[in-house]
Design a protein around this nucleic acid. Structure first.
Length: 502
RNA sequence: CGGGGCGUUGCAUAGUCUGGCUAAUGCGCCUGCUUUGGGAGCAGGAGAUCGCAGGUUCGAAUCCUGCCGCCCCGACCA
């Protein structure tokens, strides 16, 4: 029996990185820009980002945050205020040094009018927002301040990949200051929980929330919390982070307040962010060898209606039925928004048109042709089933069951992703077994290994070099027993998840 | 930023070593005819200053120099 052909070449098990790039291209999500390391996010990809924004924004507002906007350009001296922050970001900053262009003798434009103080393009906004917070805070009655910013940031990454690591990316960055350490710590955790819930229930990403070991912390944080997702090649992807900043940035920016006892105190900070990387996570979690597979709740549109017009004479009746169905479906509400319905009336052959929508990952395709009209039905295809698996049902039945069907598909994607993650998450207590877990002739192997480790970096370095793994997190929601360090046999209170990572 | 590979039409490639007809092929695009419940067939057509800038030469996609960009593997990172 011949295997059917697939829309994406190569397939996942043949060349996973190449497959990823082909899916991004075939689904028309984004393409490389004529600017080093930067991407153009195309309408279908940006539609996903818009839905991410809408949904997250509702959750941020529900937890008491307001949106605000701070400058793209930050004076260099602001970055210098926090030593660890400098260490972490100095190497990847784009710097603005001139204020003007001049035409030189060869007719070329050259920078002129050097700035007295260079500006950096924000790689993150702790320093500039901290500066403003210091002006906004005087009394404990001013606290907490809960701010979110939707913005772009620039980090001059050395090896860009569409969505996963680009020189410029879109994100939200939450920044808060609080009167007490406990409140700030709780807040950092609360926002991580918001992220976890959002990923599970909206993106169908079964992430593992946890705490980073000290070596993996955000530059300038006292504690970094993370959500870690497993991709289909079993590598880890950090899908979001939330930091407890202690008083580092308060001291750097002088965010002080008088407490109820009349004492000057430094405020306690948090910051947390999610980025367009999430779109990469969606691709690597849900897409298959035919292209993108979108969880219905995040899809820019849930349904595409494809008119089937074998003969020109059929066109009026078919198009009328398609329009009527579009109006009926658009009256439905799904995931808190009107149902997204595309009617693809382009004058193209239906075969290529169908494959285009399969590759874009739209959850439901509805075909209406003369035979359907005659029989009083529509033909329905699900993206989570084979491309030619057709169901026929009446329009009324479709309208009546569609929302439940979308929910079922959403749940199915989460279950599938979770099953993959659980299958490849193992507790390992023996060094040889750990090496075996991350060694194989096949390209896709390994997964998440939960190990005991006493925290001594010396042992870790060898492991990282041999296996190319990194510490991911100490997970919150696992009840791992205490045990013995995999290197030394010493007592270890909790297991840490290690994996290869993006 | 280190090692390796590569830039030829919208996309994928041949041609480069050994300089020489009008830069070729497939897909895609446009037109026409035939098809039509599944990525159509035939015919015709449009589309490339061969990544950029210099140089060598009677002559450069091809040789030389510099720069830019992309991909893979490292180190770094959301």
């Amino acid at each position: 029996m011949n295997e059917r052909s697939y829309a994406i070449t190569p397939r996942r098990q043949e060349d996973y990185p190449q497959w990823y790039q082909e899916v991004v291209k075939a689904a028309d999500l984004a393409q490389n820009a004529p600017v080093r390391g930067c991407m153009v996010i195309k309408p279908w990809g940006y539609g996903i980002w818009e839905n991410i924004q809408k949904e997250l924004d509702v959750r941020f507002k529900a937890t008491g945050h307001k949106n605000a906007y701070f400058p793209l350009l930050i004076p260099l001296r602001f970055l210098e205020k926090e030593a660890k922050h400098v260490e972490g970001f100095a190497k990847e900053c784009a710097v603005v040094t001139h204020a003007r262009l001049e035409v030189n003798e060869h007719g070329r434009l050259v920078p002129a009018d050097p700035l007295e103080e260079p500006l950096i393009v924000r790689p993150t906004s702790e320093t500039i927002i901290g500066e403003m917070f210091s002006l906004w805070v005087q009394s404990y009655r001013d606290l907490p301040i809960l701010i979110n910013q939707w913005a772009n940031v620039v980090r001059w990454e050395l090896r860009p990949r569409l969505f996963l690591r680009t020189a410029e990316f879109l994100w939200q960055e939450g920044h808060t200051v609080h009167a007490t350490q406990a409140e700030a710590q709780q807040h950092a955790r609360k926002m991580l929980d918001v992220y976890t819930d959002f990923c599970r229930n909206f993106l169908a990403l079964p992430v593992i929330p946890g705490r980073k070991p000290p070596t993996e912390r955000f530059p300038g944080a006292d504690d970094t919390l993370t959500i870690e997702a497993m991709m289909q090649d079993r590598k880890a992807l950090q899908a979001g982070t939330s930091h407890f900043l202690g008083q580092h940035f308060s001291k750097a920016s002088n965010i002080q307040f008088l407490d109820a006892q009349g004492q000057q105190q430094y405020a306690w900070g948090t910051s947390w962010g999610m980025t367009t990387r999430l779109i990469g996570a969606l691709v690597m979690t849900h897409a298959d060898d035919d292209g993108m597979v979108l969880p219905p709740r995040i899809a820019p549109a849930q349904v595409v209606i494809l008119p089937i017009i074998p003969k020109a004479a059929d066109a009026p009746a078919v198009m009328e039925a398609c329009q009527a169905l579009k109006l009926r479906l658009e009256a439905l509400s799904y995931a808190g928004r009107p149902l997204g319905v595309e009617l693809d009336a382009r004058d193209l052959r239906s075969g290529p048109k169908t494959w285009e929508w399969i590759k874009k990952g739209i959850p439901i395709r509805i075909e209406i042709g003369p035979k359907d009209l005659e029989a009083g039905v529509v033909s329905l295809y699900r993206r989570d089933q084979e491309p030619k698996a057709r169901q026929t049902l009446s329009t009324d039945a479709l309208v009546g069951t569609l929302l439940d069907l979308l929910d079922a598909m959403q749940a199915g994607l989460l279950e599938k992703a979770q099953a993959l993650r659980d299958t490849h998450t193992v507790e390992i207590d023996d060094l040889a077994a750990l090496y075996a877990f991350f060694s194989s002739d096949t390209q896709i192997h390994g997964g998440f290994a939960a190990i005991h480790w006493n925290g001594d970096p010396a042992h870790w370095d060898r492991l990282a070099q041999d296996l190319k793994v990194s510490p991911r997190c100490f997970p919150f929601d696992r009840s791992y027993e205490p045990g013995k360090c995999i290197f030394t046999g010493e007592f270890s209170a909790e297991r840490m998840i290690v994996a290869r990572a993006y």
